[in-house]
């Protein structure tokens, strides 16, 4: 590599880069510490992300255009086919819905008999994914609805099959979502057949969650459905999470090792909605 002849080398020139490096290391260490402690960097991030949004948008443009194009270029026959299938599915769902009305009314009556009915208003906000985290050890996605659309930190996110995660950072025009499969994520759950409550931890693997707190005399079996328990107040109650894929009893351990496979396909997420729960007083 030839040195540019126009560039003069002055070895005795005063050079502050070492001091700058020390300064940067100190500043970024403080920032990182603040970030792990939920300090003021959360607010800082919210404001700074306004500048980051256009870059995210442009960077995801090729993928989104490609998807749009392939949608537009798909053949007419397949679209008609899909339409037919969707209509059938719609009729099926509607017929199931009729039953839900009945159940809902019955449920309300029973609650009234008990004298306590939490009047919950759930708001569903439809959203699209604009970015997925490029790093395999961070299971995060970004959606196109932000605090300007009324998304708050802690709102639960679901896709047509089940819960996928919750909002951890609300930027102004978009928000970041931590998926339930992330290593740092834990979700309070209830096993439907036994009624046992536990916490399911993410493992970093998209198809596996773990429950580590059930005793060996638990009746949980493979294939049991798992729903959110609503404890802790972050996730709404009764949404499907996944089903138990493995129950193992380890000799000498006093807890069962239970694995869970989420209902939602976390690797290919398409449409999602934000579930906003408003508890309106005690009526």
């Amino acid at each position: 590599m030839a040195i540019n002849p126009g560039q003069r080398i002055n070895r005795y020139e005063k050079n502050y880069s070492s001091y700058r490096l020390i300064f940067v290391i100190i500043v970024s260490s403080i920032l990182m510490y603040q970030d792990t402690q939920d300090g003021y960097s959360k607010t800082l991030r919210t404001y700074l992300s306004v500048f980051a949004y256009p870059i995210t948008y442009v960077a995801n443009l090729p993928k989104n255009t490609f998807q749009g194009l392939s949608l537009r270029l798909s053949e007419r026959a397949s679209i008609i086919n899909e339409n037919k299938k969707l209509k059938e599915e719609n009729i099926l769902l509607k017929s199931q819905l009729q039953e839900v009305y009945k159940l809902d009314a019955e449920n309300k009556r029973l609650y009234e008999l008990l004298g306590s009915y939490p009047d919950r208003q759930r708001n569903f906000l439809f959203a699209d994914i604009i970015a997925t985290s490029p790093s395999p050890d961070k299971r995060q996605i970004t959606i196109n609805k932000g605090s300007i659309d009324g998304v708050n930190i802690g709102d639960a996110i679901a896709d047509p099959y089940g819960i996928i995660g919750h909002v951890i950072r609300d930027q102004v025009f978009s928000s970041e979502i931590l998926l339930i499969a992330d290593l740092e994520h834990a979700i309070p759950i209830e096993i439907t057949s036994t009624g046992e409550r536990a916490i399911a931890y993410g493992t970093g693997d998209m198809n596996r969650l773990e429950i580590r707190s059930l005793p060996p005399n638990s009746k949980a079996k493979k294939g049991n459905a798992v729903i959110t328990s609503g404890l802790g107040g972050r996730y709404p109650e009764g949404f499907p999470v996944g089903e138990i894929s493995r129950v193992e009893r380890i000799e000498g351990e006093n807890l069962l090792a239970i694995e869970l496979s989420p209902f939602a396909n976390l690797e290919v997420i398409n449409e999602i909605w934000v579930i906003q729960t408003e508890v309106s007083g005690d009526e």
Partner: peptide, 9 residues
Amino acid sequence: LLQGGLLGE
């Protein structure tokens, strides 16, 4: 900011 990691890493 863009990758959603620790701020400063």
